[in-house]
Design a protein around this nucleic acid. Structure first.
Lengths: 343, 343
DNA sequence: TGTCTGGCTGCACAGCTGTGCAGCGTCGTG
DNA sequence: CACGACGCTGCACAGCTGTGCAGCCAGACA
């Protein structure tokens, strides 16, 4: 039960307003506003009395109303498709911390549930929309432009010409080449690349670069592209690709760690293959669980800190600033799921 | 100051308002408001003209301003400590989808970064605060009560007497007993329980019930309680607990899957123990990755769907409704990290 | 033709905050 | 003592939307 209120308090079940505090402290509502505005002119006694009254009532400044007055809100819309994906969730964790540190709020939207309801983010006057998954729908691009909200795409496909959006991209092409070279040095003769079915994304660039680099080495590549970006997709791919025979696939590149782990585990535990002796597997992302000793996945690392830092820089740019393109370097992380180089 | 407006269309860099739309459509601002309010009285022609103008300008109703007028907002504050934790991220994924389906928005806050800045959620007039991690600070409890915001605690410690909060609890005690019975049936003689260092949580209940049930079986239990709720805590615990000797620990209960997986992997890959022959390991949660063939962790399942459903019910209750207590049953999931029962 | 009804429309205000501006009192100085 | 300066306060308005209420117009009916 709530303790009985003093007569001056606000009614039950409603938020406390500055007027309530003013009444209790015996000042005008303006004074309350000033007491919570740094640098505003209030006497020390009044401020003390106001803060005391606010504390007693549990008052907090209504940032929604404050936003009406200012040109930008503190809200940043963050869109993701699958927060239980190991790399996405690591990204979200880092990003939400960084936003918090800059006193920005994170309005989360799961794009897996609805269609292109992403425009609803604009209903809340978000200053910026950040996309972690999926492609940016044209309607969202237009809405952001018309309303002066920035848009940050992380490892997302380049929007159509003329669309204003900040791009934060890991060097997918270089990563794809690194993966190809590593499998070639391991002596693989017959390799495959596993992509999810979604066509429009940085994953395609990784796969493309992998294939063309492999062509330079003269090694044939089988492409598997089906299903969502998930562990199960890796499982399915492994079952289909790793049929016994004289020219069995001996190296697989999964365009995300989650896919690669599905391949790795299926090969080891369901098909009875030895990794890396019979099969080399390499991933992309370097999700935290890829380093666990149960997996030991060799992968292409996208540094999360650099990605987050670049994202925060784009987020905090003023709305009229020119869009930014930031490329983040990637690197090979050796863990043992790829055979040692033959010399 | 605001830049001078062109006769039609809003200036760059600001959000489009209903007044802008009204000007373009040649109607009053009220008419615009009504065109976007279901059931309000507007003629078909006016509505069509207004919607067309809104489409052209990219107008979206400002839900922040609308909130000023209504008694409750659409915002739900969600607090978590570590979104890269496998079970927390699965919870967040399910919750964000469910909120989206009910047209509620998810204002995310990472409690790992700041102290008790959680009160900042109230600045945004959230209708409800949901806690996924950590204990509810007294100040937050008081703030919510004074402002008529509901509070939902998921597997969190019971708040102090008199605090109004909805509780959604998996049956920790029953789960702890299930884990103990299972290890006892496996013939374990010397078991340990691994808790994280945080004292205040449902994890303690799991451990307590485990210990008392083991006492009934007459089996000694070593307690390890240190570090955060993380994979590394499991690693550390395994290194410390599994020292070779004549009375080595032969069964371990990790109070979360993440901890249990740290134990499991360290035992298998670093210490060279066979699981389950030399050591039985059991976890709690049933995170998605626990079912992966690389782990095969036997665990106590907290059904995510039931948890989410109960949470949504509490979230959508009116502010004046009495607090709710919802207990969700748990069950044992066999996967092979515990030895077969001896009969 | 006059009157009444009903459907739209716009005015004005509420809801909450930030801030320019004028007013008020006090204090210091000539 | 008179006057100016200065610090503080409250008024009033802006910012954006929802809505009660009155007014307007057209159409229907006697």
């Amino acid at each position: 039960m709530r303790p009985p209120r003093p007569p001056l308090g606000p009614p039950r079940g409603r938020f406390v307003s500055a007027a309530d505090v003013a009444r209790l402290a015996g000042v005008s509502r303006s004074a309350v506003s000033r007491a919570f505005t740094p640098g505003a002119q209030v006497s020390e006694q009044a401020r003390a009395r106001i803060l005391e009254a606010a504390e007693e009532l549990g008052y907090r400044v209504n940032r929604l109303a404050r936003t009406l007055h200012q040109d930008r809100s503190d809200l940043v819309g963050v869109v993701g498709g699958n927060f239980s994906n190991p790399y996405i969730s690591a990204q979200l964790d880092a990003l939400s911390r960084a936003l918090h540190a800059r006193r920005l709020q994170c309005l989360l939207m799961n794009s897996a549930s609805g269609g292109d309801d992403l425009g609803r983010l604009l209903d809340y006057r978000v200053r910026t929309v950040v996309l972690l998954s999926g492609a940016a729908p044209d309607t969202l691009i237009r809405l952001c432009a018309q309303n002066g909200a920035r848009m940050v795409l992380i490892n997302r496909p380049r929007p159509p010409e003329g669309a204003r959006a900040d791009l934060v991209l890991a060097d997918s092409a270089h990563g794809g080449r690194l993966a190809a070279d590593r499998l070639a040095r391991a002596g693989c003769q017959n390799v495959a690349v596993v992509i999810s079915g979604s066509r429009t994304s940085a994953k395609l660039d990784r796969a493309e670069a992998f294939c063309s680099e492999m062509a330079l080495h003269g090694i044939p590549v089988t492409r598997w592209a089906d299903g969502p970006n998930s562990y199960e997709t890796g499982v399915e791919a492994a079952r289909a690709l790793l049929i016994p025979g004289d020219r069995r696939v001996d190296g697989i590149f999964g365009v995300t760690d989650e896919i690669a782990l599905g391949v790795l585990n299926t090969a080891r535990f369901e098909l009875g293959l030895r990794v890396p002796e019979d099969l080399s597997v390499i991933g992309f992302d370097d999700a935290p669980i890829s380093g666990w000793s149960s997996h030991g996945l060799t992968t292409i690392r996208q540094p999360l800190e650099a990605l987050t830092r670049a994202t925060m820089e784009a987020i905090t740019l003023p709305p009229e600033a020119e869009p930014v393109l930031c490329a983040v370097p990637v690197q090979l992380v050796e863990r043992g799921s790829v055979r040692a180089p033959i010399t």
